[in-house]
């Protein structure tokens, strides 16, 4: 029986593990945290159907009960080696050793550290939060300012750490636009009296149902979308956030005072993704994510034989694409093992 070692227990790693195990392959799934789910653990609802994120998470976790899957929680690979016969051995942080016939990297992404956009004041101004912080607020059903008040005016800032030469990120994180729309609707549902603004560069509604959701946000939920990039934020005496934006459709500067400012943080390759790329000698794209062998025919392949990739370690992708990518990786690996 063939064995595959998967590094990373986020949605991609979990789904790939299940698909491979269902094909009769023995799987070792390594996850650094004490639970699987990765970034999904931080999310409240999913777009476009507003599914509870933890329902999906739970389903993915239940799949891991498959007898072909051995889960290694709270473990990190300390060393990865490949022998002359194409077999991999992975040393874990507890000193144990795993062996496999193929390696699947599913180490995912990290969210952009909003403190790097100093002018937005995250970590300094009391009422500046990230989209991840907001998801946590949603989960606790507590959307409040630092003083405990209901925010009357909320601004959502798109493209924080994405498409931004100043922070050396030229890539689009792809999901922030629809996340902003989803979060604006969720805010409206929880705070029907509040004014909600989205400040965007472009609205990139790439997935099925996204454009409709964007339209609904404007027509049904009265979210105000303003095309213009935030130039500066400052805190006033009431701890509100005073922002300066150029409305690039009207060609006018705007100054708006917000009770709560949400930064839609972009996606970057996780430290583990970059570390595995170095360890395995696979190439990185200029964005910092792992470069697939071919964008059309080899999106789960790397230049290293037996090393496969899946999910957001190669590019930002939504959960639909992530799960599809995991299934695609499982097909690639099964075919590779059958030809061995």
């Amino acid at each position: 029986m063939h064995t595959v070692i998967i590094i990373g227990g986020g949605p991609a790693g979990c789904e790939a593990a299940y698909q491979l195990a269902s094909d009769g392959i023995q799987v070792h799934l390594i996850e650094k945290n004490n639970e699987t789910g990765g970034n999904l653990n931080n999310w409240y609802q999913l777009f476009p159907d507003r599914k509870n994120a933890q329902d999906l998470n739970k389903r993915l976790q239940e799949q891991l009960n498959h007898p072909g899957i051995t889960l290694h929680l709270g473990m990190e690979p300390s060393r990865v080696e490949k022998d002359g016969q194409g077999r991999f051995s992975v040393s874990l942080s507890d000193g144990s050793l795993l062996e496999g016939d193929a390696l699947l990297v599913a180490t995912g992404f990290k969210t952009f550290d909003a403190k790097r956009k100093e002018e937005y004041g995250y970590g300094i101004y009391e009422n500046v939060v990230t989209s991840v912080d907001l998801e946590n607020m949603f989960r606790n059903h507590a959307i409040r300012t630092s003083k405990g008040d209901v925010p009357r005016r909320i601004g959502i800032i798109h493209c924080v750490g994405s498409r931004d030469e100043k922070v050396c990120n030229f890539h689009c994180s792809k999901l922030c636009c629809i996340t902003g729309v989803k979060q604006a609707i969720e805010l409206r549902e929880m705070l029907p009296e509040s004014e909600i603004f989205c400040f965007y560069m472009d609205m990139r509604m790439f997935g099925p149902g996204y454009e409709e959701m964007y339209r609904e946000a404007q027509e049904k939920y009265n979210i105000k979308f303003i095309r213009g990039r935030l130039s500066e934020a400052a805190e006033n005496r009431e701890h509100q956030v005073q922002v300066k934006v150029e409305d690039t459709l009207l060609g006018r500067p705007l100054r708006v005072t917000l009770d709560l400012m949400v930064l839609l943080v972009g996606m970057e390759a996780s430290n583990e993704t970059q570390g595995m790329a170095r360890e395995l000698g696979v190439k990185l794209a200029p964005s910092g994510f792992i470069l697939p062998l071919d964008p059309h025919y080899g999106n789960n392949l790397t230049g290293e034989k037996g090393v496969f990739i899946t999910g957001c370690c190669s590019a930002p992708m939504n959960l639909t694409d992530t799960l599809n990518d995991a299934r695609s990786a499982a097909v690639c690996i099964t075919r590779y093992l059958n030809m061995k």
């Binding site: 403190k115 004041g121 300094i124 701890h239």
Partner: peptide
């Protein structure tokens, strides 16, 4: 305003 945040920037 969080002074610790500012001090980190400094």
């Amino acid at each position: 305003m969080n002074l610790e945040g500012k001090q980190q920037v400094w």
